[in-house]
Design a protein around this nucleic acid. Structure first.
Length: 434
RNA sequence: GUGGUCGUAGCUCAGCUGGUAGAGCGCGGGAUUGUGGUUCCCGAUGUCACGGGUUCGAACCCCGUCUACCACCCCA
């Protein structure tokens, strides 16, 4: 039996777990500060709970199988649909608006590529039970707040609205739904394909004259402001007003980061009904990373579970992709072990255990060498661990009731009575480091 | 799911037109048996991804599988 992980799945070794966990903690703390409460849902759902929500392509990426009780089940594809199920199912136990956050793995039977896996973590915040500009803006502010907490600079949220997409296409005379979808699919590629090529593609896929296709692509490709779109596509008036309000509120919050109207944002998931958005990092070094955070409003999804319609809006942040970006930008703290490393000599090991445990009681993270051997070797291990201080307590010190505290960086060392050790360690580590 | 590229010591890679493998880094040991980042000496690195095939003989050629990566699709 060979030891290996499944395609698209990964082990997270300590070297990546440490920054990862730091990130998760910062994200969760931010969600809570923004007024969201935690929710956990099962990895497995009834298959029919998930099918039909993500579009044809999405359904194909569902991991599904039949369990031992002959139930058709599937691993969750995102955190949004399970949330919708929870709100529908527990409607009477939840007070609306319900603001929940969730950081959890999701599964997609996708073809893996760099930064793209079959199991990956999403960090979601959603508000169910409010279809207002405040709710939309709260979600966007929360997304930006998370990026701020992670030290990310230069994030831009591209904002659009489903009704702008369809309204503008109608204004161009594209009324057939499948033609509209074909157009949107093309528009969505504006980031990585030349406009002319897209127009060609759209002309065929939407069965439009090439002139019209070219015009449409050019319109979506050029920067538009709300007023001009309003004049051009009257059916989008309500949507445009909403976006305007949302952007204003986000700006008023003073949160760093930019939100701008970009009509070319499409989003493939079927369940979106209102505003939609994608977030990119502007730093050149991470240009190719794609969207790190996106979402939208989905007012019909909760109601699709057969009860009352409950409007909702949410945002989803891709932990792994963002982690890769932070790494590229050098925003990750170096991985270090406990700050104190105690060397050990067999004759005095008991004394060392006693001293170290006292340090730990005082809140200092410390490791005791478990291999022994030459002091030089032990100090080498201490250094590799990233420790800042080493403890040396051998026969020589024990006889005098002393312990050596060594600063690994400066190589200075001090001889101290046992009673003063904790105080000395704490003051050398400084107030922040434990 | 469709199409394509790659896969050699822990890591980064070399290996000419097929003759059973190398470097650097890292790792282990040592330089008068309690003091680590430099230097010096010595040492081990490996079913050349896996399974078949062609050949007197394959890391190198052919087929398949797996993996990673790229494009499409879609997306975090």
């Amino acid at each position: 039996m060979e030891a290996k992980t499944l395609k698209g799945f990964r082990d997270y070794l300590p070297a990546v777990m440490v920054p990862r966990q730091q990130m998760i903690r910062a994200i969760e703390a931010t969600f809570e500060r923004q007024g969201f409460v935690p929710l956990q849902t099962p990895a497995l759902e009834y298959k029919e709970t998930l099918t039909g929500k993500y579009g044809e392509e999405g359904d194909k990426l569902l991991y599904s199988f039949r369990d031992h009780g002959e139930r058709d089940v599937a691993l969750r594809y995102d955190l949004t649909v399970p949330l919708a199920r929870v709100v529908a199912q527990h409607r009477n136990e939840l007070q609306l608006p319900f603001r929940r956050y969730q950081v959890a793995p999701v599964w997609r039977a996708d073809k893996p590529q760099r930064g793209r896996f079959r199991e990956f973590f999403q960090c979601d915040a959603d508000i169910a039970g409010a279809n207002t500009a405040q709710a939309d803006a709260e979600i966007l502010v929360t997304g930006l707040a998370v990026l701020q907490a992670l030290g990310v600079q230069g994030a831009v949220i591209d904002l659009n609205h489903r009704d702008v997409l369809f309204g503008a296409l109608q204004a161009f005379g594209v009324t057939d739904l499948s033609a509209q979808i074909a157009c949107i699919r093309g528009i969505d590629k504006l980031d990585k394909m030349a406009a002319a090529d897209i127009a060609q593609e759209v002309a065929t896929s939407a069965a439009l004259p090439i002139e019209v296709a070219t015009q449409i692509v050019a319109w979506f490709n050029s920067p538009q402001d709300i007023a001009s779109v309003q004049a051009f596509a009257p059916p989008a008036a309500v949507a445009l007003t909403r976006m305007d309000e949302v952007m204003t509120l986000v700006r008023c919050s003073g949160i760093p980061g930019e939100v701008r109207f970009r009509p070319a944002i499409a989003r493939g998931l079927d369940y979106y009904t209102g505003i939609i958005y994608e977030t990119r990092l502007t730093d050149e070094k991470v240009k190719g990373f794609g969207a790190v955070m996106s979402g939208g409003r989905y007012d019909g999804l909760i109601g699709s579970f057969g009860r009352e319609q409950v409007p909702a809006v949410g945002i989803s942040l891709g932990l792994d992709r963002l982690l890769a970006a932070l790494q590229e930008l050098g925003l990750l703290a170096p991985v270090i072990g406990p700050p104190v490393y105690a060397t050990v000599f067999t004759e005095t090991a008991g004394l060392t255990f006693a001293q170290v445990q006292q340090l730990r009681q005082a809140g200092v993270n410390a490791e005791i060498d478990c291999l022994g051997g030459k002091l030089g070797k032990q100090l080498e291990r201490a250094e590799k661990r990233g420790a800042r201080l080493a403890l040396i307590l051998g026969a020589t010190e024990a006889e005098q009731g002393l312990v050596l505290l060594k600063d690994l960086a400066s190589r200075e060392q001090f001889s101290l009575p046992f009673a003063e050790l904790t105080q000395a360690v704490l003051s050398r580590l400084g107030p922040a480091a434990k």
